[in-house]
Design a protein around this nucleic acid. Structure first.
Lengths: 342, 342
DNA sequence: TTGTAGGCGTTATCAC
DNA sequence: GTGATAACGCCTACAA
């Protein structure tokens, strides 16, 4: 009645422990007849391996690294916090997690940092950087060393990664489009679209997604060309002021990426801007406050805790060559209002 | 450099393994002087117990039961599926999970079923039933046997549970209210509120939450008295037809509980009902289809996978007397549109 | 190709 | 009070 162990299998199959082990782990040749008997016994008794006991015996510890953009960024900060927490929580689970900050804006710097990774003592890397040919090559090199690589938050579609952990930004943009359309149900007007930089593929995909839904389902709304403000408060302020006069029918602002603080500041400065629908991405200290104060109507977010834990689970599954429960690893596109802010 | 073990502690403290164990687990009296030395060594070497090795040695298996409403119910079905999946996934983690279906409508039947639980071979129970005095007493009895009890999905505020795993239905109602208000941004009119039964405290709390937000933030909207249709398609159809004539300013339908299929059918039958905002709770086959078809504008949901895994983690933590990471166990109130439907 | 013996980090059972 | 010693379920030499 108790869970069967390798001993039970061995007895049931009339062979020794090591033979059972060999067929279970495909280590060496076993006479077909014996292999069959073992498999039959496994089947009959419903044996499932105790992975913890196995890891204990193997003295295995998983070593994972998160490669994250450095520098001040509210969203990345929430990720760093989540990684730390997860690392702490998993320490007793035989996994060590470290953070490697990189200058995400400089492809060469990224590669240089990636090359400092100790490929011998490493099991997996979760990488959150923009994809460039250099990065792609560096990743190929890491994978050749037998290390598992997951694209984290930003997909790396042209690189050979084991997995992508993050949301589909096209769908996130569609979600934004749908919210804009539903929030402006019977209204006509234009939508200001801002982001810090369209270099990030995230913003591009969100823009496409939003455009698709707005133009198809809500043609009475018009999304204006994307305004980029390269970390320049002055620029966005002026642009916003200009947009207001240029588009008296402005009904909404859609902030696709980082720079929400600047955007909100600018909105506040233009005191005549009232009753605009404001939608932003990512739950940070800034957007959280924006929701609470009623300055932001909705935030489209991904749960960073899930993001990190999913990356960890996926890397472990890859290491153990076990299957992933896709449903659990699907990162949700969340919609947050003040009322369901947690 | 490697993780210190009890052996290291013993050597460092100049005592035996057993003494270390006694100090670590407070089993028997140890001479204060030795206890101090052990504690100091633990501190110095940064020892943390390997819980998996411990569980292995203890031969511990966790036995958990989910007590769930039986009978046809789309939402419960999704939970059952999630429990099965989680049970399968955790089988190798030394946890056995079983499902006990109960006739949730009959307090005496619930108690009768609960009494069939084998309190000797059980570690924890997750209970999803309406709270009644009988249920409360039965739970007290289970807890007295040293078994951990978590209220699951529906809170049991007057019972002595270890924890509640689920969303705050008042907040869920507030979220619905906010969505209604934002979807009907500049409109005036009334909102039809339906549910299968207001006996469930979930519906009551959602109603309160919705009312609060609507009356405070969107006074131009008026939420009509709750209509209950006890699994009676005919009733809701007639009621809806009646409501339409009685309230020509009807702008939205808010379905607070189960019975979404019936509600949608009725909406379809009243073909003259067009352009109503429809908000429902819980992601099931029905609401999923409703979203896809554009019949439902938004669904307010709780992720059943998280619900189940959280309950499991909490019960384990209670068994091991370890701390819970509150942030991880917080169940989100999710807002699902067609675009972020997964 | 197969089996035996020992160890992984912890707990449990004995004697001392 | 204390300390050997043998489990727990699995893996890995090494020997046969």
């Amino acid at each position: 009645m108790a869970k069967p162990t390798v001993h039970d299998i061995a007895r049931e199959a009339g062979v020794s422990l090591s033979t059972v082990d060999r067929v279970l782990n495909g280590r060496a040749d076993v006479r077909p007849k014996n292999a069959e008997r073992v498999k039959a016994a496994v089947e009959r008794l419903g044996y499932v391996r105790d992975t913890h006991a196995a890891n204990l015996a193997k003295q295995r510890r998983y070593k994972f690294v998160f490669v994250l953009p450095e520098g001040p960024n509210h969203f990345v900060e929430t990720i760093v916090a989540a990684v730390r927490e997860a690392g702490y929580a998993q320490a007793s689970d035989r996994v060590d997690v470290a953070i490697m900050p990189v200058n995400a804006g400089d492809p060469h710097a990224i590669v240089a940092r990636l090359q400092t990774l100790d490929l011998h003592s490493l099991d997996g890397v979760a990488i959150m950087v923009p994809e460039t040919p250099q990065v792609r090559d560096a990743i190929a090199h890491i994978r050749e060393a037998g290390i598992h690589v997951v694209a984290f938050v930003s997909d790396l579609p042209n690189s050979k990664c084991d997995h992508f952990v993050g949301i589909d930004n096209f769908s996130a943009g569609q979600t934004a489009g749908a919210l804009l359309g539903k929030f402006l149900r019977n209204e006509t007007g234009s939508i200001l679209v801002v982001t810090n930089s369209m270099v990030a593929r995230d913003s591009i995909e969100r823009r496409y997604g939003m455009d698709e839904v707005v133009s198809r389902d809500f043609p009475r709304l018009r999304a204006l060309p994307t305004i980029e403000f390269y970390d320049d408060p002055q620029r966005i302020r002026e642009t916003l002021a200009h947009a207001l006069t240029a588009h008296p029918d402005l009904k909404a602002v859609y902030s696709m990426g980082s720079g929400n603080a600047v955007m909100l500041d600018a909105l506040r400065d233009n005191a005549d801007v009232k009753d605009l629908v404001v939608i932003a991405h990512d739950l940070t200290a800034v957007t959280r406050q924006g929701l609470t104060d009623g300055e932001i109507d909705a935030v489209i977010a991904q749960n960073v805790g899930h993001l990190v834990r999913s990356a960890l689970r996926v890397m472990r599954a890859k290491c153990d060559a076990t299957v992933i429960f896709e449903a659990q690893e699907q990162i949700r596109i969340e919609i947050i209002l003040r009322e369901n802010l947690y």
